[in-house]
Design a protein around this nucleic acid. Structure first.
Length: 589
DNA sequence: GAAAAGAAGAGTCGTGGACC
DNA sequence: GGTCCACGACTCTTCTTTTC
């Protein structure tokens, strides 16, 4: 059996191109069921581009497993199912680029072109693994790589929390490596691949994940190396093994690329006028150079920003591994929060690329809280508080509200904070509200305090956006929305959410009944306007104001159908169905 | 006693992904 | 591009609690 495996492995490895960068991502995920895990994994895949992924301690079994694997997106899959809630190894690879041959399977490892390892936390089970691998190592004289979570360290230096009782297991593991003539591929990046507890006093960390190889593998891939990636979503950091190592490549200047988003910036036209002074041979090059600088100043590159965040977290983890100062823990949490929740801002507004929920607009509430924190509520009179609410508090969310539909929960939370401030309460202390909120939000002339309710304010801004779309049909943003969501039809904008609408479009659709009431069509030659069901002469469609029931076959007639060029309206065709008042309004057009 | 906040539960909606 | 599905988030309703 062992000989058959070895022979197959030998032929496979002969086919493996030594010049090809064969990258393997190995990660002890401690559960693959969460949406956050998928986001983080996709981020690693996008940046690191591995051809093979080994996920350890997956915690998921049954039908859900296949579903998650499909979401991850690799065409080649092999799994060792979990035992109860423990263990689980998933091997995923790009079938179109390479084919992995599964040679040996065990609860703690899968051997294909390399061996993916998840060593049990229990010593007795680990002993079984070491024996199995030892048997394999003694029969192998071809390149062999083992990578994964070994749940062991080679010496106390690989542990960040002391513990002299660990000395003996360390020695045992170290001896095992030497006895089997294996080499540690080393690493770059943070020192420890596992950490638990955020409190510095109780924090434990260690290098539990690693890659080992035999001499043959090292001879075949002399540049091969391991990189510890940034730890996120799991106590373990993913490790990346590359047969070509991680030397930095010289990066040349990027060619100029025009970005359509520039057209949306108000200052773009001015910038072009400023940069384009005279036509010459170098004018275009000068313009391109100028625009690239301008782009860096005005627009943020989201991917660059996220890369920067990953680098900062990696640096902090490096520093913490060497016993860095306590404030770094706080900074790391903050950066992780930015990475998880904030995909970036554009012109001060969050870019909405995920599901919009209360978390998405948490920053708006936080801005409000920050402003409130600076005010001494009890030192202000009621009139003073009302003035501050109208002049400052209600204006904080307005900028975001102009282009985004805020969740009702967010609007209610802002309302609650304003209410508490108005009635001199604080975030912890509640005070009785002397008048109902519905009364407070009425206009002054109606006995209220003229304070805007967030839901109504947001609806008003969405209606304004829709109205601008009607008034400025040639604006680029309006063209995009119309092209994407408005169905082909005669006359009106059809405010229908359609398939997977954006947040702004949903907001516009919600207030569309208000908009539709206000829109009247300019009939032109009458070939784009329905005589009976569009609003073109009266505030309501003529069919609703009609005295008699309009025949069904007539209901789809256009205005042009009732107009005779050079003669006028064909009154006899419709006067029996409309009132005298409507007739007068039609005549007045 | 009045008004709002808070809690709990039921029902609805929205999203991402799969599929055609 | 449209439809369907599962699941989580959100909304609404009702009742209780809080605060003066």
């Amino acid at each position: 059996m062992v000989m058959r495996i070895i022979l197959r492995l030998f032929f496979i490895l002969l086919l493996m191109d030594t010049h090809m960068d064969f990258r393997i991502l190995i990660w002890n995920t401690q559960g693959t069921g969460s949406r956050e895990f998928l986001h983080t994994l996709r981020e690693h895949l996008r940046i690191q581009r591995p051809m093979v992924v080994a996920l350890l301690e997956t915690h998921v079994s049954g039908r859900k497993t296949e579903k998650i694997c499909r979401r991850i997106g690799f065409s080649g899959r092999f799994r060792v199912e979990t035992q109860g809630f423990q263990g689980g190894i998933w091997l995923l690879w790009m079938e179109e680029k390479l084919h992995l041959h599964i040679l040996d399977v065990h609860a703690q490892f899968i051997t294909a072109e390399f061996t993916a390892i998840y060593a049990s936390p229990h010593l007795s089970f680990r002993e079984v693994l070491w024996n199995k691998l030892e048997e394999h190592a003694s029969n192998v004289n071809i390149p062999w790589l083992l990578a994964g979570d070994f749940n062991e360290t080679r010496n106390l230096d690989e542990r960040g929390h002391g513990g002299h009782d660990m000395a003996q297991p360390c020695t045992r593991f170290s001896n095992w490596i030497e006895n089997n003539a294996l080499l540690d591929l080393g690493f770059s990046g943070p020192k420890f691949t596992w950490a638990r507890a955020q409190n510095p006093e109780t924090k434990k960390s260690a290098r539990l994940d690693r890659a080992l190889c035999n001499l043959e593998w090292r001879a075949r891939f002399p540049e091969g190396g391991v990189r510890h990636l940034v730890r996120n979503q799991s106590d373990h950091a993913p490790i990346l093994v590359s047969t070509k190592g991680f030397t930095t490549r010289p990066i040349g200047p990027k060619p100029f690329r025009f970005q359509a988003a520039w057209l949306l910036h108000q200052g773009f036209d001015e910038e072009i006028c400023h940069a384009w002074r005279y036509a010459s041979e170098s004018a275009l090059c000068d313009l391109a150079e100028h625009l690239m600088v301008w782009n860096e100043e005005k627009f943020e590159n989201l991917f660059q920003r996220r890369r920067l965040l990953w680098c900062r977290i990696e640096g902090i983890q490096n520093r913490l591994a060497k016993g860095g100062p306590r404030y770094l823990l706080k900074l790391k949490r903050k950066l992780r929060g930015q990475l998880d929740e904030d995909l970036g801002m554009y012109l001060g507004v969050s870019t909405l690329s995920q599901r919009v929920n209360k978390k998405t607009f948490r920053y708006v509430v936080e801005r409000l809280e920050k402003r409130l924190a600076g005010w001494r509520t009890k030192c202000l009179s009621l009139a003073g508080r009302v003035t501050l609410i109208n002049s400052t508090l209600t204006t904080i969310p307005t900028y975001v509200m102009q282009t985004c539909r805020l969740p009702r929960g967010t609007c209610d939370e802002i309302n609650r904070k304003i209410q508490r401030f108005l009635w001199a309460g604080t975030s912890t202390e509640r005070k009785p509200h002397l008048v109902a909120w519905a009364t407070v939000t009425r206009p002054l002339r109606e006995g209220g305090l003229g304070i805007n309710s967030m839901r109504e304010l947001n609806s008003a801004y969405m209606a304004k956006l829709g109205w601008r779309m009607v008034l400025e049909p040639k604006a680029l943003w309006a063209k995009v929305l119309k092209q994407k969501y408005c169905k082909e039809g005669i006359g009106y904008y059809h405010f229908s959410p359609g398939c997977k609408p954006s947040n702004a479009w949903k907001g516009i659709c919600e207030v569309s009944p208000i908009l539709q009431r206000a829109i009247m069509l300019s009939i032109g030659d009458g070939r784009n306007t329905l005589f009976w069901s569009h609003r073109w002469a009266t505030r309501r469609p003529i069919i609703e104001a009609g005295d008699n029931l309009v025949p069904t076959e007539d209901q789809k007639k256009l205005v042009a159908d009732y107009w005779q060029p050079g003669v006028g309206w064909k009154w006899k065709d419709f006067t029996s169905f409309v009132s005298r008042e409507v007739q007068e309004q039609i005549t007045s057009i």
